[in-house]
């Protein structure tokens, strides 16, 4: 049995999660502070992939990055990067598609911390960055883990967006969810079952892991 789609899926999910951690943390932190109209617009845009059919998102990404026109043409001429039917295209689409799963838990975790925590840190002479690093982030660790796992798991399950922008190129864009669909279309049920079972097992173990971590975190009076 060909394991490539599974590896490709795991690679895509890992890269997406890492990018979203780097991108999402500062963004969630910014959004957790005072609201402005501009921030509401940004939040709405970030949340859109939650409610939009994935095929719609995929369709627009396909149009935007088509090498025949506009942005896609410019990217391919100047940087020689192509986002359509390529692995980097999948990464880009996944980052956009999974962004709400990273941003919204982290943002609400920041918001639930009492304002006085950062204020106390500021009066001690600490900068915003030091406060974020030593006070805020350590106190939202469980939410951070949940967000990362959800992002990872959500990327594993991506289908519509991936199909639209990546297609079904073996070894390049043919991730596990596509492999399942493709196998079923060819009436190769054993293969479909094989990929499905692996996806099911991975996601189940991950979600269970988070639940266990958050529920039974060992607590001791001494650090």
């Amino acid at each position: 049995m060909d394991l490539t789609p599974i590896w490709l899926t795991l690679k895509l999910a890992a890269i997406t999660t890492l990018i979203l951690l780097a991108l999402g943390l500062p963004l969630a932190y910014r959004l957790s502070k005072k609201r402005s109209f501009f921030k509401i617009v940004i939040e709405a845009i970030i949340t859109m992939p939650l409610v939009l059919p994935p095929s719609v998102l995929g369709f627009y990404l396909l149009l935007a990055f088509s090498p025949q026109r506009g942005l896609g043409k410019w990217l391919s001429e100047v940087f020689n990067v192509q986002f359509v039917f390529s692995f980097q295209g999948l990464v880009l689409a996944s980052v956009i598609y999974s962004m709400p799963f990273m941003i919204s838990p982290v943002k609400s975790a920041f918001q639930q911390l009492p304002l006085s925590l950062s204020q106390a840190s500021y009066t001690l002479g600490k900068s915003q960055w030091q406060t974020l690093r030593y006070v805020l982030l350590p106190n939202i660790k469980p939410s951070l883990l949940t967000a990362a796992v959800l992002t990872f798991a959500h990327t594993l399950g991506e289908f519509g967006v991936v199909l639209m922008i990546g297609g079904n190129i073996p070894g390049v864009t043919r991730v596990a969810s596509i492999a399942v669909y493709d196998s079923v279309e060819q009436q190769d049920y054993p293969s479909a079952n094989y990929y499905s079972l692996i996806l099911f097992a991975i996601t189940f173990v991950m979600v269970m892991g988070v639940f266990i971590y958050n529920k039974y975190q060992v607590k001791t009076p001494l650090a």
Partner: peptide, 25 residues
């Protein structure tokens, strides 16, 4: 001036202790 430059000692009514840090930390 930002609070960092004023460096007043501030005791908050809700204490504002850092849950992740020990007394010494």
């Amino acid at each position: 001036l930002p609070p960092q430059q004023r460096k007043t000692g501030f005791v908050f009514q809700d204490y504002a202790l850092f849950p992740n840090m020990t007394v010494k930390q």
